[in-house]
Design a protein around this nucleic acid. Structure first.
Lengths: 342, 342
DNA sequence: GGCAATTCTTCACACGTTTGCAATCAAACA
DNA sequence: TGTTTGATTGCAAACGTGTGAAGAATTGCC
């Protein structure tokens, strides 16, 4: 609890001015080799570490980046943040973590906090970023990188996976298995990624010259509970779907569980797909067919872009591609299964 | 990217000294009401926010806390951090997030970073904290609060759940169902909580005058993969257990999945319990009997203790109790099921 | 031994705040 | 008119650091 040792303390002990200490510790060649050695020795003994907050003042950069998430307990977000943190630290930056929980008031608080703390850049791993929110972030006049939400702006760049293309692959996979009535359970939180995935789904349906049935598209909270509610509605249809494309793995988790209680077999009666490839996707029953999002890599790339921007370099947005991971939750629909069984 | 507006800029615009601006903005009663109004007006127009880094220097506190986790993508850790962040922010503190990934070198880096940034306190939500590590943290001379790892020390307090008691309840639940061969799959990472849970398990076994069979206790990584490997060893025993107490939900997840592939029914052939009550525990097949750890509350309490310590108040460690949540993964062993079925 | 050149160190200021103290000013009082 | 009082404001120092420029000490040269 007592005052940390300062650069002046070191100077006093060694018998030199604090300027000399500063230079010695930053390996400046102008200081006498012997003096430098003594200074470094004392600094080590005293456990001295230069205060970044003193340094920030004169250097005019805080060596921190802000990271606003909607919910850090979301496993997807956790993976992304892990990637961000790793890269940021490798470059000497520390990460301020703040959760908004999608609360506009909280979002403003976060912007204010980041402003007051003079963060050098901001990363937002959230596919749902309000326009107002973004405007406030931009007002800070520092680089902003979004994840899974392309939003052109002067200081704003983004890292995405190609949601449209991935959704196309996933939908095609289902059609290829023989499904003709494929439902889509989206996120009702208005995520950019939801719009893109829905587009991908619709474009493949259209290209396959299948009728588009709007009853097959429902929206729910991207949670297990949401998935549960959504699949109930779909199962109540006169003509049920034989396959469901879920916005993400959590939604699919709810679908699997609801199907189980309803006595519907997956993938026998119903094929189910997720999106993200959270670690649980391998451990559901049956294991989930999904799109792998390279979460850590996405976070890492976002951090790299941000670091570049902070150095004043030009940067460009990045789009990675998601990988289709086929597991046991998808199979041909029953009509075909019977045929093949012969 | 340009220089943020400073308190002097505001002073220049209004035509007063920066001292007056400072006082006006901190609601000091000595400044003329009219002047104060003009100052606040201009500050608002200019989007001025006082730099916390300038302020930190003179106030001698950074208004930040450091939070070191092993892995932020771990859902348990995510929940705890969410609670920490919420409480910290309510009190004007920002949270530095750093992951150690249980790497001693990284742990040192984190301590160094927190030191340089002059964080006012540290929270470590990890039940595995090396002694050396703790020594380095203590050297910072700031309050440290651990979660799920009681470790007495001058500046060190902790928030735990009563792992021993919870493990007793869980084990008793299994015995009560009629199980007599109960296995324990622990964490081999040497967590304090593992030791406590094992003690709880053993004490109930002992008090029930059941023989302690050391073959029934195995240790693995606390991950689905670890659980998978462990249950395989247990199933290879001549006399198999009829129930398994898993260190945590993730381990149990692997056990469930391995049992499924081995054709072993849960809970028919094998009862399985977890620990933590992650959100997935409700969505496994069958839903998992487990101990609920109030993750957010634990994080929040830890933050409150830390805030108290930083204000110089006395504090004491807190032990919360975990709640037994009985779901469908536990049932009487087959011998009894037959009896009751008549 | 005197001077210039070289090497090393200190001085002084800046960064953005807060705050004790002195200074200014107007009004009130004698 | 001179003095006191009270209200308001500015000055200056401090926090911990980096850095250009000036100063001091040493060395080399003639």
């Amino acid at each position: 609890m007592k005052r940390p040792v300062s650069i002046k303390d070191i100077g006093r002990i060694v018998g030199v001015s604090h300027s000399t200490v500063s230079r010695a510790l930053s390996q400046s060649p102008v200081v006498n080799a012997d003096t430098a050695r003594r200074i470094r020795q004392v600094a080590r003994e005293q456990g001295y570490r230069a205060s970044l907050i003193g340094r920030s003042l004169v250097m005019r950069r805080s060596m921190t980046v802000g990271c606003v998430v909607t919910d850090i307990a979301d496993p997807f977000v956790g993976g992304v943040v892990d990637g961000i943190e790793k890269v940021a630290n490798q470059h000497g930056y520390a990460v301020f973590l703040a959760s908004s929980h999608a609360d506009p008031k909280r979002e403003l608080d976060v912007v204010r906090s980041f402003h007051e703390r003079r963060v050098d850049g901001v990363i937002v791993p959230s596919s749902r970023v309000g326009f107002q929110y973004l405007r406030h972030l931009s007002a800070l006049q520092i680089p902003v990188v979004l994840i899974n939400n392309q939003h052109p702006g002067e200081y704003t760049y983004s890292v995405n996976i190609d949601n449209l293309e991935a959704a196309r692959r996933l939908t095609f996979h289902l059609l290829e298995l023989g499904h003709r009535r494929v439902a889509y359970i989206g996120s009702r939180q208005g995520n950019q990624s939801d719009a893109d995935r829905l587009s991908g789904y619709r474009s493949v349906i259209r290209e396959a010259r299948l009728p588009f049935d709007k009853d097959l598209v429902v929206h729910a909270d991207p949670t297990p509970e949401g998935g549960r509610a959504a699949i109930k509605r779909l199962l109540a249809l006169r003509r049920r779907p034989t396959a469901v494309f879920c916005y993400d793995d959590l939604t699919a988790l709810g679908v699997l569980s609801a199907a189980r209680s309803a006595g519907i077999e997956v993938p026998g009666d119903l094929s189910v797909t997720g999106f993200d490839d959270l670690y649980i996707a391998s451990y559901t029953d049956p294991p989930l067919t999904t799109i792998r999002q390279p979460m850590r890599e996405m976070g890492g790339r976002a951090a790299e872009i941000l670091l570049g921007l902070m150095r004043g370099e030009a940067a460009k947005s990045v789009t990675l591609s998601g990988e289709l991971v086929v597991r046991a939750s998808t199979a041909p629909p029953q009509v075909l299964q019977a045929v093949r069984a012969r």
